[in-house]
């Protein structure tokens, strides 16, 4: 039953392992931006010794995990499916004996696995060795963090899948994707920790899936908040977004007009 999907996970990993130079370039960029962000946020913390419950070590951990995870979770849309809708190549994807959503999810998990090795490991190690960093107290936390990261990838995938499906109606979803990319950096806790926001805004943010894509695995690693509540929130959003994706996909294929000859 699962064999095809396991193969797809491996294919997703392989597809990305081929572009090692691109991965290394991305890694370099992430690390440089990490240094800039650490400098800015440490300046904020430096005024009072801590900000919104983050001291220097918490801040370093937040920045380096965020820099590592952003490529793993892929918080910015890649629009691969949207472009296949636009070109009509989606006809091939729909002509295969699979359910498109889990098939693409499997490939995305493979991609994320590769990113975990190349894009997550090095910047986090670098940050941990060079700057203030807080390792978890409990060894279990690492396991829970891994689970939370997988959930974050699933949520991000499900959101990007829905975003790409808009191409069935819009044909070109660049506009929506740009708005999404602009919003997600702030809303998911990449720019500043979600804890920096005033309470009403923070509560409103948790009514969206965005914090669950990045802030939640970081919080799990930093042992902030109740683990069960954090993971529950992620599971809920993963289920909701995947279900919405299935519904919209069914609608999309019913109205499907494949572009081109």
């Amino acid at each position: 039953m699962l064999r095809p999907y396991l193969h797809l996970v491996r294919a997703g990993f392989r597809r990305h392992s081929i572009y090692l130079a691109a991965s290394l370039a991305g890694l370099f960029t992430n690390t440089v931006f990490g240094l800039l962000r650490v400098a800015v946020l440490l300046a904020v913390v430096g005024q009072t010794g801590s900000a919104a419950g983050y001291d220097a070590a918490d801040t370093g951990t937040f920045v380096w995990l965020g820099q590592g995870l952003l490529a793993v979770v892929m918080i910015w849309p890649d629009r691969e499916l949207a472009q296949r809708v636009r070109s009509g190549d989606v006809a091939i994807d729909l002509g295969r004996p699979w359910n498109l959503q889990p098939a693409l999810l499997a490939q995305d998990l493979g991609r994320a696995g590769h990113a975990m090795l190349i894009r997550f490991g090095p910047p986090v190690l670098f940050g941990a060795l060079v700057l203030p960093f807080r390792w978890p107290h409990s060894p279990w936390t690492v396991l829970v963090f891994a689970l939370s990261t997988v959930l974050a990838v699933v949520i991000s995938f499900a959101a990007r899948f829905l975003l790409d499906l808009t191409a069935f109606w819009l044909l070109d979803n660049r506009g929506v994707a740009t708005v999404y990319a602009a919003a997600t950096g702030v809303l998911c806790g990449l720019t500043v920790p979600v804890a920096y926001f005033p309470d009403p805004i923070r509560i409103a943010l948790y009514a969206t899936p965005f914090p669950a894509m990045l802030q939640t695995p970081i919080d799990v690693f930093g042992e902030r908040g109740a683990t069960a509540a954090l993971l529950g929130h992620q599971v809920l959003w993963a289920a909701l977004l995947l279900a919405a994706g299935q519904l919209v996909l069914a609608r999309a294929t019913r109205k499907l007009v494949v572009q081109g000859g």
Binding site: P4, H7, A11, R14, R15, R96
Partner: peptide
Amino acid sequence: DLPLRESFDLLGAI
């Protein structure tokens, strides 16, 4: 992105 052989193996699995 994949070698032809891997595409074939993947199709066989699918």
